[in-house]
Amino acid sequence: MIQVPIIKETALTLMDKAAIDIPDDYLTGLQKAADTEEGDLSSFVLNAMLENYQAAKEDRRAMCADTGVPRWYVKMGNEAQISGGPVALEEALRGATAEATTGVPLRPNRVHPLWRTDHNNNVGLNAPEIEYSFEPDADWIDITTVHKGGLFGSDYRMLFPGDGIEGIKRFFLDCLVAFGKRGLACQPAIIGVGLGGSKDITMVLGKQAACLRTVGDRNPDPKVAELEMELKELGNSIGMGAMGFVGKSMVIDCHIECGFTHTGGMPMSVHAFCLSSRRAVARIHRDGRVEYRTDPNWFTPYMRRETIGWQSTTASLKQSV
């Protein structure tokens, strides 16, 4: 049985880590971009960012004062049990969000869309979002927090099969150029692309592709993986860099996730996970042990399953013995 106080404490630590420590995979990617960037203004921006991550770490202060809109991803092992159940889990995550807002401190970004009511703690109606996934043959829970910027850099479009890969590339360019000018999307970014699904799922897949996969990770479908590399290159050949200045660093990596969609359509979403690509992950084991990491490992084979059932690995192991 996983105890709720441990979940709360872990969630608080995660909020702190996400806001302050840039994940290594993104940092390495940005360093590479800084090494090869030739535009003088773009280079200056990348160097300033590298210095900024260092300052954040040394002083334990938020890397960007727009601390984004903190949200949670929970992956529950099929055998995991939580004292108090999912209701207690959600209360712990909401509580940790509020406490970390004053503790780190974060900016209380969340307000009512019409009345602009601010609870000063990043908690409110439908906030923070908590998304769930499950994992067979596991008794742990993985908790990930992502603090994504909230204003620019994502878009959706209904494309059709006839638009083809060319149509995908064109919409990809549209988004990068539109939000890249003046650097509204705070590039270079990890670009997530959602392809297929229904409109809501198209958006969810694209966002998860941007926020929950690490730099260097490739989609297991070799053709999709190839398209990821192609789009990355395309983005970096626009001639634009950080802040929209002349340069060549727009995309640190590109991730695509697909979902089965209406036979007549090919909906697509694009999401930019900005210069403050903030994510932190912890696995809480049944015995209360906690392990921290920065790779959410969200898209497991189970998550990407294509057929009705799922063959349990332990069951198949048992069978094979």
């Binding site: 300033a48 300052a55 002083d59 202060r61 727009d66 210069l275």
Partner: peptide, 14 residues
């Protein structure tokens, strides 16, 4: 004057 990056929040905080 534009901020840089734009995420240089920690440097400005300093």
């Amino acid at each position: 004057l534009t901020t840089v990056g734009y995420g240089t929040g920690a440097l400005l905080g300093r």
